[in-house]
């Protein structure tokens, strides 16, 4: 019964898409998908969903933030400001290029205080994903994007009165991704997102800990013992109505954590869902 309902919903959605009177699909100039592509929102266009909010401004610029990080802050007593800026090339041709920088900062002071039973404890995590993207429209129905993503993460903590927790860590990695989008109808598109971890950088940790009566200051680098192949492929479907946009995907491989763009280590089935309204 549930499967039948799902198929019914899918059929209705596809039907709606096929009778749509206007080409709202992404490959139309100014209507392109902005996730995993070099494209940006039109000036003063807004895109809002449960996951993020972003706005286009003149000059090919786009700003945004991730809403869940702000929303969960009061519940975990932790401030997590996030934001990104994306700049597209000014030419507006079929081949577009962009650069994007995201900043994520976890001020984990309260978590550190709970963990150490010391109100003076401080801890923070800064994640800096930097992305360069090239997108091309082969024709009206097909577009492909190539993304190069470098992520630097730096964590620091300090526990002032006893020395069980204190230190800092830095790690970086470099990923290559591609997003293929094939428009089937005016509303409906097929997508394929593939990602591969091209380089896992070393981690550098400075830490102080106590064991027994011994206090240890460590200045250590860490590199993975095995260079594992880390990748994923997520086929999906996208629906783009006049304002409402929905993207559903299901793939397999290593999941890149949203926002911070850091890959996990264990391959798994990866669901992908995004919903947003552009206006």
């Amino acid at each position: 019964m549930r499967a039948a309902l799902i198929w019914l919903v899918v059929a209705v959605v596809l039907a709606l898409g096929s009778v749509s009177s206007r080409a709202w699909a992404y490959q139309e100039k100014g209507e392109e998908r902005v996730d995993y592509t070099a494209y940006t929102l039109r000036p003063w266009e807004l895109s809002v969903g449960p996951f993020k909010a972003e706005a286009g401004v003149p000059g090919g610029l786009m700003f945004g933030t991730y809403l869940p990080t702000w929303a969960i802050g009061p519940f975990v007593d932790m401030t997590i400001p996030t934001g990104f800026v994306k700049l597209r090339d000014p030419f507006g041709g079929p081949v577009a290029a962009s650069a994007r920088v995201t900043v994520v900062y976890f001020d984990a002071r309260s978590l550190a205080a709970d963990a150490t039973q010391n109100s003076g404890s401080r801890a923070g995590l800064l994640v800096l994903p930097i992305e360069a993207t090239i997108s091309a429209r082969y024709q009206r129905y097909v577009s492909q994007s190539l993304l190069f993503t470098y992520v630097f993460a730096s964590a620091g903590g300090k526990e002032p009165s006893d020395t069980s927790i204190r230190g800092a860590a830095g790690v970086s990695n470099f990923s290559i991704s591609t997003m293929l989008e094939v428009r089937v109808t005016q509303v409906f598109s097929l997508t394929l997102l593939a990602r591969v971890l091209a380089h896992q950088g070393n981690a550098h940790v400075t830490a102080q800990f106590s064991e027994g009566s011994t206090t240890v200051d460590a200045d250590l680098g860490a590199r993975p013992r095995q260079r594992e192949f880390v990748a994923c492929a997520i086929p999906g479907v996208a629906f783009s109505w006049e304002h409402v946009n929905l993207h559903l995907g299901l793939g397999y491989g290593t999941w890149w954590l949203p926002i911070v763009e850091l890959p996990l280590t264990t391959p798994q089935i990866i669901p992908d869902l995004s919903f947003y309204v552009r206006f």
Binding site: T214, T215, V216, L220, R225
Partner: peptide
Amino acid sequence: DFLLQGVINA
């Protein structure tokens, strides 16, 4: 899982 390298001061 990681190869560690560096300095320890105890």
